[in-house]
Amino acid sequence: MPDLPLAVADCAIDAVAACLDAAADLAEARTGRRPDVMLDPAHVAAAVRSEALLRDRDGNGIEGFAPLSRLWRAADGWVRTHANYPWHRAALHRALGDNIETAIAARSATEVEQMVYEAGGLAVAARTKEEWRTGGPLRRIDPTGGAVRPVPLDRMRVLDLTRVIAGPVGTRMLAALGADVLRVDDPNRPELPLHAVDGTIGKASTLLDAATPDGRRTLDYLAGEADVIVTGYRPGAMRKLGLAPDQIAGRHPGKVVATLSAWGTGEIWGNRRGFDSLVQVATGIGWACSADGERPGALPCQLLDHATGYLLAAGVLEALTAGEGAHVSVSLARTARWLLDRPPGRAEEPFDPDAYRVDLGGGWTGIAPPGRFDGEPLRWPREPAYGAAAPEFTRRA
């Protein structure tokens, strides 16, 4: 792989290392002994490509992007759209009609961006690093009150309200570290086939309609039973369900609530949806990776998703070690700034993904969780089974 101007390998390693170190710190706080941590950089390189390296029994993967999720030439630059989900494709057509290429070519990139977002879709104009400014710490931890349960990770319960890649990466890593993770999805918005497998590795997965009274009651009960609640929906969406961090702290003190967003809360586009590919283009990563300076490029993997997922898990573990209820917040845009502000790093060494491939169950194979504790490799505790579990935690207090 050719050298890139961005420290992709270093950021990936640092994010995973932060998670493993935080887990070791929590183990020391709980047991009085800190396990020895080991990390293989080649394993990290495979892990941050997990969705691309997922294989069925015939050795086939699943395509991650729909045809309308791509770069388009606008009248004055470039636009990146995201239309993997059917409701996003419908919004893109509402905004631009049937001939999307012609409609984009006739307008400025920022005009297309605004039109599509107003229609409920997703599109961003390609910007340089200087044109995009966002602040805030890489991961923020704000105390919310109440003492957390002082239990080891193998007694920890995590309520996973995330989708796609970043949130599921963070919660499945918590599962690999020993937590009992229950992922909840809306049956009216089914997950895509790729993420229905890759995003449920290591977890129990259930379907729950929070728009119904029974569903709301069950979701609030699960929040009360959980030690950690992780949400990956855009800012404001959880408040409608009574699951914003301050609402949870009011009803269920002593919880660690982690929120993941694309653009960050209270910052540029804080109320908008977003995905890794869009954040890359909007924040200047696309131009930083351009091969010719004429067309935006892309990172060699969905690094923002994966690094942010591991940083989310690290923040959760740090909050648990502190012993107090807390709100942990991370965003893809902050991770993008972290990457962009670093000096150029080392190029990735060639790696064999099959060296880290494991049987996931159900005919699927994928990449094992990265890291070793006291020489023992981490393992996925459950095979992926989207929506197959009851809405309850396996382990009790």
Score class of each variant (00 low, 15 high):
M1T: 12
D3I: 14
D3P: 15
D10P: 05
D10T: 14
A18H: 00
C19H: 00
L20S: 01
A23T: 03
A23C: 07
A23E: 01
L26H: 10
A27K: 05
G32M: 03
D36T: 15
V37M: 01
D40G: 05
A42S: 09
V44C: 02
A47S: 15
V48W: 02
V48K: 00
R49A: 08
A52C: 13
L53N: 12
D58N: 15
G61Q: 12
E63P: 06
P67I: 12
S69L: 09
W72C: 06
W72N: 03
W72A: 10
R73L: 03
R73D: 00
V79H: 10
Y85S: 03
R89K: 12
R89Y: 12
L96I: 01
I100Y: 04
E101N: 02
T102N: 11
T110N: 00
Q114W: 07
W132L: 04
G135W: 07
G136F: 10
P137K: 09
P137L: 05
L138V: 11
T144P: 03
A147G: 05
P152T: 11
D154W: 13
R155Y: 07
R157T: 12
D160H: 09
D160G: 12
V164D: 03
V164I: 15
G167L: 04
A175L: 02
L177D: 06
A179I: 04
D180P: 10
L182S: 06
V184Q: 08
P187Y: 13
N188V: 11
L192D: 12
L194R: 14
D198H: 04
G199F: 09
G199N: 10
I201L: 11
G202T: 12
K203C: 00
K203A: 01
L207A: 00
D209S: 08
T212Q: 04
T218H: 05
L219Y: 00
A223F: 01
E225R: 13
V228P: 00
V228R: 03
V228K: 02
T231D: 11
Y233P: 01
P235F: 01
G236T: 05
M238H: 01
K240S: 09
G242L: 11
L243E: 10
P245A: 05
P253C: 09
K255W: 07
A258Y: 06
S261Q: 05
S261H: 07
A262Q: 06
G264Q: 03
G266Y: 06
E267D: 15
I268W: 06
G270N: 09
N271R: 14
N271I: 02
R273N: 14
G274T: 04
C289W: 01
D292S: 14
G293I: 14
Q302I: 01
L303D: 07
H306R: 07
Y310W: 09
A314V: 13
G315W: 07
V316F: 07
E318S: 13
L320F: 08
L320R: 11
T321F: 00
A322V: 08
E324S: 10
V328L: 05
V328F: 07
L332G: 02
A333M: 01
R334N: 02
R337T: 13
L339V: 14
R342V: 11
P343W: 12
P344V: 13
E348F: 13
E348Y: 12
P353C: 09
A355Y: 04
Y356Q: 05
L360C: 05
G361D: 06
G362M: 04
G363L: 05
A368L: 05
A368I: 06
P369A: 11
P370I: 01
D374G: 06
R382A: 11
A385V: 00
G387K: 02
A388L: 03
